[in-house]
Structures are given as structure tokens and as C-alpha cells.
Design a protein around this nucleic acid. Structure first.
Lengths: 348, 348
DNA sequence: CTGAAAGCGCTAACAC
DNA sequence: GTGTTAGCGCTTTCAG
């Protein structure tokens, strides 16, 4: 705890530099159209006084805040289970920093918080929002779009197919379906014939898309080879047990993510089955702390999570800049699907 | 991307309710000292117009922002390796929400960002800061304190012993030393005699404190039983190998955190040693996704990370409120050390 | 208990 | 180029 000192104002700088407030303002905001000698004098005054612009005063007139909100709605679980959001946040943070914008983090837990977030966003405190819409039935994304705040979503929202009244939905995601296909094809290329899939939580589009990718390749798959799970290690364990029970002849597993694969491998080991000799295992995400630590190291589908975060921010900022300048130069930003790559390690 | 609608102002509400701006302002900010009937009328007008106060305008005059910054300085690694920060953030977020404050997240990577963060904090954009000072030599915490922003630190800062010119340093931490002692005593109670310690990164006070706790109990420990590591699973593996090499007779390991314990157990298994029969293992943190998933489940020292976050926020807010009202009621807030508890599972 | 009036610090037209 | 002049939307004395 320390004391707050009074801050010098534009006025003070102007006085010290012997110019008008307007001139100081111009210099502070880029300084074009001001004589070089004056620019220098103002700069010096700013320096000497330790002047820092008052953001509140500036926002009041510009109606910009140089701040964007990141909304993460997660009733509990996943935010902690894997470092997914931390990485995404880092990507977002980097991009915002480069753009001199601040990151306002809004974490919600349950409906009680929805109203609060809606109000905040509608309140015009931020220039835009980055929202992670994890569950199909989450009302929050809708609320947010209705709030009239420029928004980019992380992960394909469930309604992404159509166009809402408010305009096209912009989102960033990785190629879940294509990545899944590549993983399964790899398993097929290995000569495996009884290839199973442990799904993610099917109320999230990423899980649905990965399942679709699996089906794309395994067209007439024995339905018993698909077992529903939830993206967690514990879920992976339960699913693997069930799978082994239903189909003892399974010789490969494509797990919806690395954590699930980890759980599955644990069960496989307990059952005395060797990976990959008896059962090949492949994950999704390439969450380093997990994928490199399994035994054997996990073959998996990599998505560049940090880049996804960076891209979300970039898309949003670009949209904001566009509307700020000549409305409509270059067309509205559209969604981006990032490619995935198969990372071969030892498990498949 | 959507369009931003014009927002109703206080003026509009006043007109609609047939009162003055001042009255509306009073109602919006608590409404004491206003006749009940008017309060009602204003409330209704607010409702009908969907009025939301303009925070910038308000801040301009009140000089408060109802926002606090969370600064996380982490050159790379740990932020992702474990869900530590995610949990802490959730705790912070909950407390801030209850206090109607916003969370501005500042992630830094390296010195380049220090200036930026320093400027931001000094710029008076937020009412206070919550800072995670992870490394002993990090210049950022000092910078921040100098910026004159009320601050609470997460984890004991290295200089916590003395009092800085700016006043006492307030921080929240768990009882690393006591927790370590308890863990080691437990091992002793199990009849183990060759008890080793794999340290955390010793440029962090938490690692140093846990090591001290270990030493408190193992006063004349064979120095070969202490091996330095870095809080990561890979580090834990390397350390365990070295340990086994130096002291094949080791019969217990106290690892500086769960991730390290995980790495150590992996090596133990590879070497054909049973846990806990041959070597008992105990961790620190009780990071559920890790501790419950190891084989066998990990005995560990639990710290309530979310509560630490909540407490940091509470301490900061309390300090702010105090100075806002009658300066100095109840004395300056002081640091808090949260207790730890030993969670017995199967590994020790 | 309520209203009128004076800014908070800054930007953006518009003059000079 | 540079200064002057209006506010941005809100809170807060100060009268009434």
C-alpha cells in the first residue's frame, strides 16, 4: 500500500512548454502538423513533469477505451484442467499489447453472472469483446451479441451456420474436423482396423467436429467403438474401460484430447496392454506438459492455441479500426480456421 | 461485429423522470436522501431507457476506476505448466465482482514489457494492483511499488523482511515452510530414514521456504539427499535420476510440488521401484488434475489457491476503501499466511 | 430534500 | 501551424 500522488494535467504541460493545450494534445497523440521545435519543447515538458494522459478524460470525448473484454464462461471444470485458456490469453495479451489496448478479464460462473457481464458490455466500457462460448446451450454469447458490442468468438459457436440479425458471427477455431481425419487416417495407415474414438463433451462444437472427422474416415464404423466422454482424464479412464469391455479387440484409440488420451493410456497400462503395440493411442491439442509426459510420449494433433488467441484479438482490432476510419474498407472480417498438424511421437 | 447504439445519458433519464440530473445521480449511486416516490420514478426511467452510467465520465470526477490490475510476470514456463494462476485468477475475480470492480490483466514477458506496465500503473488507470512476483531478481515489483499504486503481492516477495521506503509490503502466501515441515514429519512418522527433497526453482521464495521447512525437520540431513530442480515434471525426472544415482538407498522423497512429484514417480516406476513400498513420495499444492491422476494417487500438501486469490483482492479493496473514507480506520492491512493441510492419498 | 451550476482533463472543430 | 472554444457525461458543493 502506498500513497497516490497528484498527476500533472495537459494544462500544466502546456504552461511549462509555453504553448496551448491543443498543441500538447497533438504532440501527445502523434504530433503531426506541429513544428518540430515545438514538438521537442512539449516532449521535454512532458518528460520533466512526468505527464501521463488521463484515460478517463480522453475516453469521455473520443468514446474509445483502448480496452477489450475477454469473457470466459465456464461453470467450473475445464478452465483449470488444462492450460488452454492460459495460452489463449497469452496470445490475446500479446496482440493487444502491440495495439496499446488493455485486457479486461470477465470470468463468469453461472447465470448469476450473465446479467452482470451483459450490463458491463452494454455499458460501453470496452471497445469490443473476445468471448469463449464453450457450451451449446450457453445463453451468454447471445446476450453479448445483443449488447451490440463488436465481438469475436473463440471456437465455433453452435449457431455459426446461419447469420444472426446482428450480422455474421466471427470466430477463430482450429480445423477440428480435418485434424481428426488426419489422426484417424494415420491410424488406418498403421494397419489398425478396430479404431475407436473417445469423444469430448458433446455439448461443445470442438467435440462434435472431431467426432465428425472420425466418422468421415471410419464411414461404417461399429457404433460400439465410439464412446462418449468429457475431455477429462477421469472421463478418459472410464471410457477406456467401457471400450475394453465392449470391444476387447480394439487396436487403436483416437481420443478427443490429450487429457483423455492420458486417462485411456493409464487404463491400458493397468490392463497390461502395451501402447502402441497392442493399442495405438492418439490425442488432440498437443498440450506439451501432458503429451510429452505420457508413457510413451503421445502422438497427437497439434493446434496452435496461442496463435488462435492472437488471431482473435487481431480480427477484433482490425474490425474496430476499420469502422473507426473509412467505414467498410476491405470488407468485414470473417472467421478463420487454423490448420492442425499431426505430431508423431511414440504412442501411434 | 455489430453496430454500437447511442447510449442514453443521465440527462435523458432526468428528463424522462421529470427531475434534475443531480437527483438521478443520487438515485443511481445508492439513493439515500431522496424521497421514495422520486427514487421509484427514477428507477423506472432508468429501466425503460436501459440507462447505464458512463464510467469514463464518472471516473473523471471521482478519480476512482473501480478497476484493479493483475500483473503476472512470467517469462514463459510456469503459467501454463500448472493451473495455478487460473485458480488464483478465479478467486480474485470472484472477490472483485462482489465489489463491482473490474479486473485488468497485465501479462508481461521480459523487460520490454516492464516499462509498459510501469507506465500503465503510474498512469492512474486502476485503483490498485495485485502482483505476482515470482522471481527473486524480478525488477518489476520494485517498479510497481515506485509507481505509487496500492499493491498486494501474491507470494512472499524476496524483500519482504524489511520495510521499503514506500511502506510495508503486503502479501498473501501459504505457509510453505510449515507445510513442508508437516510433509517431512509425516514421512518420518512412516519410519523412513533416507528422506530426500527435490527442490523447486530456488529463485522463488516458495521453493526456498519449502526447502527451509525440510531442513527444519531433517536437521543433519545428508546433503546428497537434497537435489535442486525447477517445479516441472521434466525437472522432477532428472532430479530423481540423479538422486537414485547418488543415494540408491533413498526411501522417501518430498517433492517441491505435485508436478515434480509426478516426474519423480515416473522415474521410480521406470526403475522398477514401488511407491510407496520402496520409496514414499509426497508433493505440494494438491493440484487435483495431477495429484489424483498419478499412480498411486499422490499424498500432498494442500494450499487453497483460490482462497489466496480471493484474499489478495479483499486485502487490496479493504485498503482502498479505508483510505477513501476516514483515512486510517483499523490500521493498515497486513500480510496473510494461509495454513496448509496434508492430504493423505496412497503415495506416502 | 432537490435543483442549479461548476468543473473533472481531454479532444476536435473552427478560427486566426 | 497554432490557439480558442465547446463540450463529452457525470458528481458535487451550494443554494433554495
Amino acid at each position: 500500500m502506498t500513497e497516490t500522488a497528484p498527476r500533472p494535467t495537459l494544462e500544466a504541460v502546456a504552461a511549462r512548454a509555453g504553448v496551448s493545450r491543443a498543441t500538447v494534445s497533438r504532440v501527445v497523440n502523434g504530433g503531426d502538423g506541429v513544428r518540430e521545435s515545438l514538438v521537442e519543447r512539449v516532449r521535454q515538458a512532458v518528460e520533466e513533469l512526468g505527464y501521463v494522459p488521463n484515460q478517463a478524460a480522453r475516453s469521455l470525448v473520443t468514446r474509445r477505451h483502448d480496452a477489450i473484454a475477454v469473457v470466459i464462461a465456464e461453470p467450473e471444470t475445464r478452465v483449470f484442467a488444462d492450460p488452454f485458456f492460459a495460452m489463449q490469453l497469452r496470445g490475446i495479451s500479446k496482440e493487444l499489447t502491440a495495439h496499446d489496448s488493455q485486457l479486461v478479464l470477465l470470468l463468469t460462473e453461472g447465470r448469476a453472472d450473465h446479467a452482470r457481464v451483459g450490463r458491463y458490455l452494454a455499458g460501453g466500457h470496452v471497445d469490443g469483446a473476445l468471448v469463449f462460448s464453450l457450451h451449446l446451450d450457453d445463453p451468454l454469447p447471445g446476450l453479448i451479441q445483443r449488447a451490440g458490442v463488436p465481438t469475436v468468438f473463440g471456437g465455433r459457436p453452435s449457431w455459426s451456420e446461419g447469420t444472426r440479425a446482428t450480422g455474421p458471427t466471427v470466430y477463430v477455431d482450429c480445423d477440428n474436423r480435418g485434424g481428426a481425419r488426419e489422426a484417424v487416417r494415420h491410424l488406418v495407415g498403421l494397419g489398425r482396423t478396430r479404431i475407436a474414438h473417445i469423444t469430448g463433451a458433446l455439448d461443445q462444437t470442438s467435440a462434435v467436429d472431431r467426432l465428425d472427422g472420425f466418422r468421415d474416415v471410419m464411414v461404417d464404423v461399429d457404433p460400439r467403438l465410439i464412446v462418449e466422454s468429457d475431455f477429462t482424464p477421469g472421463g478418459g479412464e472410464r471410457a477406456m474401460r467401457e471400450l475394453l469391455d465392449r470391444c476387447p479387440d480394439v487396436d487403436a484409440v483416437f481420443a478427443a484430447n490429450d487429457l483423455t488420451a492420458y486417462g485411456a493410456m493409464k487404463v491400458l497400462r493397468e490392463e497390461g496392454l502395451r501402447v502402441p503395440e497392442d493399442v495405438a493411442v492418439i490425442g488432440f491439442d498437443d498440450m506439451l506438459p501432458v503429451a510429452e509426459q505420457t508413457e510413451p510420449p503421445l502422438t497427437t494433433v497439434r493446434q496452435d492455441i496461442e496463435e488462435m488467441g492472437r488471431l482473435m484479438a487481431r480480427l477484433l482490432l482490425r474490425g474496430l479500426d476499420r469502422r473507426a476510419t473509412s467505414e467498410g474498407v476491405g470488407g468485414a472480417p470473417s472467421s478463420v480456421i487454423l490448420p492442425t498438424t499431426l505430431v508423431r511421437r511414440a504412442s501411434a
